[in-house]
Design a protein around this nucleic acid. Structure first.
Lengths: 200, 200
DNA sequence: CAAGTTTTGGATTTCAGAATACAGAAAGGC
DNA sequence: GCCTTTCTGTATTCTGAAATCCAAAACTTG
């Protein structure tokens, strides 16, 4: 029929997300996006109608990829609840380590976007994506906490729903603190200290 | 000699900070700043040479005001270490409650700025302000933890420096989680759960 | 009360970056 | 191998916002 695309859509989305999550929406130019994805501007606009649209798609992609990664850890039946939680923390701190090694900040598209009310207002889908993502991740965490209490790896403590919120809150905080240059080792200890009410 | 200013510089700085901390640097127009401070554009530019400059000044003002507030809580000799820490948490969550009551997000200039590497790169003073502010706040927290252990209100646990980082990390996380609409009551419980290793 | 200096308000300019237009190239069907 | 369709690259336009300019007003002081 017609000439097919030479670029892979999800590769572009990942490149875009990588930019957005470090620089935020406003501070990422279409120039940067083209460069990062190695795609010409018209191709970008042709495939995704606007910067807004690309952002929404990238956020969606990013959120579901991240969530899938976390889900695979949190539903690993070969591990106890406590082990899954620790492994999740490891994975998140490792992201930071990798970013640092590559010389750029890891950032977090979720935190950036959450902290920006204008952005959420610009497109209702953004608020929806964040809300849904949050609920799903909280659900996974809640299940993990319940599982940990069943398998005896985690003590009784805060209600599971609240525990899930704590884990999520601590993760956001870790992402912020990571920007200040604290080493992964220390981040790790802080995280475990913060989870004391769930783990020890 | 000459006509005096009709506006108070620090009032303008506070108004500017209020905008910046909700919308971030890029998403705050000079228009909004004029409106919020009720000052005409030329007056703004006359008093503070540019948007960048105004931002730096506002950040400085915001950081030192916030820090003073926290310092007054954390050095209150009439309270035990543990009580001071709890009172700090109360104060921070109350900010959120107030902002919500006024119908806008509280945001946090510190978190916004920390998460934005471009902004820090734009002006070295920004990184310096953040760094200094962080160190001072960590110092206050560390002293409070030591004091709490001396006065018997806080158990042994993580090293004081690490404990301070935990408190600070948790506060950042709380500020992010607050944006998702979690109620102050729940934020409060989460915060205390997160501080279990220091308080209980 | 007049001189001198600074502030003020509004219009204007300038600029960066998002979005578009268009010409030409590449691929696949017939 | 031609023809249609979609892609690519460059140049251009458009837009929103930062910054500047200038004339007029306001205040202090001698």
């Amino acid at each position: 029929m017609a000439r097919p695309r030479t670029f892979d859509e999800s590769v572009v989305l990942e490149a875009a997300a990588a930019q957005f999550r470090v620089h935020g929406y406003a501070d990422t130019s279409t120039e940067q996006l083209c460069e990062a994805a190695d795609v010409r501007r018209s191709s970008l606009y042709n495939a995704f109608t606007s910067k807004d649209e690309l952002f929404v798609r990238a956020l969606e992609h990013y959120a579901s990829t991240m969530r899938a990664l976390q889900a695979s850890i949190l539903t690993d039946a070969s591990l106890s609840g406590a082990e899954r939680l620790r492994k999740l923390i490891d994975a998140i701190i490792d992201e930071e380590r990798v970013a640092r090694a590559e010389g750029h900040a890891a950032g977090c598209m979720g935190v950036h976007t959450l902290m920006n009310p204008d952005l959420r207002a610009r497109d209702e889908r953004i608020a929806r994506i964040l809300e849904r993502d949050l609920q799903e991740r909280l659900g996974l965490l809640e299940d993990t906490i319940r599982a940990g209490r069943m398998d005896g790896s985690m003590p009784d403590g805060p209600a599971a729903g609240e525990g899930a919120l704590l884990v999520n809150t601590l993760i956001s905080g870790i992402r912020v603190t990571a920007q200040t240059g604290v080493t992964p080792e220390i981040l790790h200890r802080i995280a475990l200290d913060g989870l004391r009410s769930l783990l020890a």
